[in-house]
Design a protein around this nucleic acid. Structure first.
Lengths: 213, 213
DNA sequence: ATGAAGCTAATCGTATACCAGAATCCACCA
DNA sequence: TGGTGGATTCTGGTATACGATTAGCTTCAT
C-alpha cells in the first residue's frame, strides 16, 4: 500500500500516544524517559523524537531540564477542540469528497467496515477506528488540512474516550457514518458537509451532557 | 519575560526553519544531517528533534532511510494555507481579544512596534516580525488554536517571502495592522474579525496577482 | 518547631563513538 | 547499450559518558 517501512520513532510515537489516549499515562504524570525507553526497548533518540511529536500534538508539555508532562484535560480545551473541528472538518470532508479517487473511496469503505467490525466485538477499540475513518474522509484533500485534522482528531479522541466510551452512543453514530460515507462517495459535497456538521454536533452534545453530570 | 531557557533543540529548530523560510535551503534539497549538524556545531539528537518538528510544520518531508527533503512550494498549497487562515484566524483573533489581559495588550503593542521599526530599516526582516505580531493577537485564545495558527503562519510566511517580499506592499498592510490592534485592544471582537478577514484577503489577493504574472 | 541554607541524588540535555542496513553510485561486463 | 554487483554514503539506532539543573532531603540557626 503506502508506507510499509516505519521508523522506530514512528512506532514509539504511536505506542506512547496510545498510552496517553487510553489513560495508561495519566494527565499530570511526568514522563520518565529512561523508564519508558527501557520498557519499550528503545534508546533515547527515537523516544525523544516521539515525545517531541506528542508535544506538538498537544498531548505533552515540556519544561526545559524537567522533561515532559502529560497535559491535563479540561472542559475549556474540549470546547476549543470541538469548535475547531466544527470550523474545519465539514469543509475539509466536503472538499475531499470532490477530489477523492476510486482508491480513496475504497480506503474509506475499508475504514468504515473495520470500524463496524470493531463495534461488533465486545471489547473492541472502536475509538481508534473511528478516528481512522474520519481521517480517511479528509485525506484526499490537501496535505496541510489533513495534518491539522489529524491533530484535532487525536485531541478529540482523548475526551471521547474519557467521557463517552463508557456510555455506548454507538448505534446512532454508526448510522451517521454510513450516511456520510454514501454521500461522500457520491461526491455530494453539500450533503456531506451538512451531515458532518450534524455528526460533530451530535458527539459534542453527548460530550456536554456527560460533562455536566 | 516568559521562557528564557531554551534547549539546543529549540534553537536548532529556529535556525533551520529560518534557513528554509528565507530560501537558504531550497525546496527539493535533501537535508544532509551530519553536514548541518557540523555547521551548527550540534550533535544529532537536537538536530533530529528539530527536523522532526519541521516535518510536522509541513516544511520538510521525510522518507525512511533517505532522510528529510525540503518540501516544494505550490500554488495549491498556498491556496490551502490561506483558505485555512481565513477559516481560523479571524475567529481566533476575535476570541483572543475578548480574553486578552493588559499584559497581552502590551505584548501585542510591543510586537507591532517592533514590526514597524523593522519596516523602517532598509533591509529589515519584517516578515518574521509580521508573523510575531499576528501570533501575538492569537495567543490569549486557546492553546490548541494558537498552535494551529502558528503552523499556518509559518507556512504562509514562505509564500509571502517568495512572492511578496520583493514588491513592497507594506504601507497599506501596516496601516491595517494598526487598525486591527486598536480594535483588538478595545475588545471589539466583531470589528477585529472583520478587519482580519480583510487583511488576509488583501495579502491573498496580492499573492494571487504575483502568482498570475 | 520552623524556615532557610546547603548537600545529594535523580534526571535531563547533549556529545561521542560505533554499527547495521538501506539507498545510491559506479565501474565492469554481457 | 544496458544491466549487475559490489563499494560507498547516509540514515536510523544503540550504548555510554558527562555537565547542568532540578528536586528532595538534611541540617542548622532562629
Amino acid at each position: 500500500m503506502n508506507i510499509v517501512v516505519r521508523t522506530l520513532s514512528d512506532q514509539t510515537y504511536e505506542i506512547v500516544r496510545r498510552r496517553i489516549l487510553v489513560g495508561a499515562m495519566q494527565p499530570g504524570t511526568a514522563v520518565r524517559q529512561d523508564v519508558i525507553a527501557a520498557e519499550l526497548g528503545v534508546s533515547k533518540i527515537p523516544l525523544r523524537e516521539a515525545l517531541g511529536r506528542l508535544e506538538q500534538d498537544g498531548l505533552l508539555s515540556s519544561y526545559p531540564n524537567r522533561g515532559y508532562v502529560v497535559r491535563d484535560l479540561s472542559t475549556d480545551e474540549a470546547s476549543e477542540v470541538f469548535a475547531l473541528r466544527l470550523k474545519l472538518e465539514p469543509g475539509a470532508v466536503a472538499e475531499a469528497c470532490l477530489r477523492a479517487t476510486p482508491a480513496d473511496h475504497a480506503a474509506a469503505e475499508t475504514a468504515l467496515s473495520a470500524l463496524e467490525a470493531e463495534l461488533a466485538k465486545p471489547d473492541g477499540d472502536h475509538v481508534s477506528f473511528n478516528r481512522a475513518f474520519h481521517l480517511a474522509l479528509v485525506r484526499p484533500g490537501g496535505h496541510i488540512t489533513f495534518q491539522l485534522m489529524e491533530r484535532l482528531q487525536i485531541l478529540a479522541e482523548r475526551y471521547v474516550r474519557v467521557h463517552l466510551e463508557p456510555m455506548g452512543r454507538d448505534e446512532r453514530a454508526s448510522q451517521e457514518h454510513r450516511e456520510i460515507l454514501t454521500a461522500w462517495t457520491r461526491g455530494d459535497a453539500a450533503e456531506v458537509e451538512a451531515l458532518t456538521v450534524n455528526h460533530i454536533l451530535g458527539t459534542l452534545s453527548d460530550l456536554k451532557q456527560q460533562l455536566s453530570t
